[in-house]
């Protein structure tokens, strides 16, 4: 099927900083706010399948990289309860987690994965 390309509309460079309160600038900002999904207009940053998340034994949570550098997290307990949102402790973003609820109804903690070797074999 034909798909239209999504695009980011970037108005011309503004010489002034955002202290400029001109109606035009306000309009641009308003449009940007809606598109960027500012805090307050909460929508999920992304949608991730549970199999793409990593079990973190230390955090006791499934994790996925957050664009801020931290990790989105959802606990096993959350999943058992049917929670679909993984949150980042460092910022306002959150993920929608896609999983089969039945798989987690009485799920146990996944096996611990081997961590980084402290010294590499040269």
């Amino acid at each position: 099927a034909a798909t239209a390309l999504t695009l980011t509309q970037l108005p011309p460079f503004a010489a002034a900083r955002n202290t400029d309160a001109s109606p035009l600038f306000s309009l641009v900002c308003e449009r940007g706010r809606r598109r960027l999904g500012f805090r307050g207009e909460m929508s999920a940053y992304d949608e991730v399948e549970i199999e793409d998340m990593e079990w973190n034994a230390e955090l006791k949570a499934y994790t996925y990289p957050c664009p801020c550098g931290d990790l989105f997290q959802i606990t096993l307990e959350d999943l058992r309860l049917g929670e679909e949102i993984a949150r980042c402790p460092s910022c306002s973003l959150f993920l929608t987690v896609v999983y089969n609820a039945e798989d987690f109804a009485d799920a146990k903690e996944p096996a611990h994965k081997p961590g980084p070797s402290p010294v590499a074999v040269a």
Partner: peptide, 30 residues
Amino acid sequence: GWHHALLLSGGELFTIGVYRHQKCDHPVPG
């Protein structure tokens, strides 16, 4: 980026994709 890209061509800057996964509903002619 994770949902967008910048392209420099002949000194001109272009963008594709979106920020923060917010799909643009109405591509703006320009």
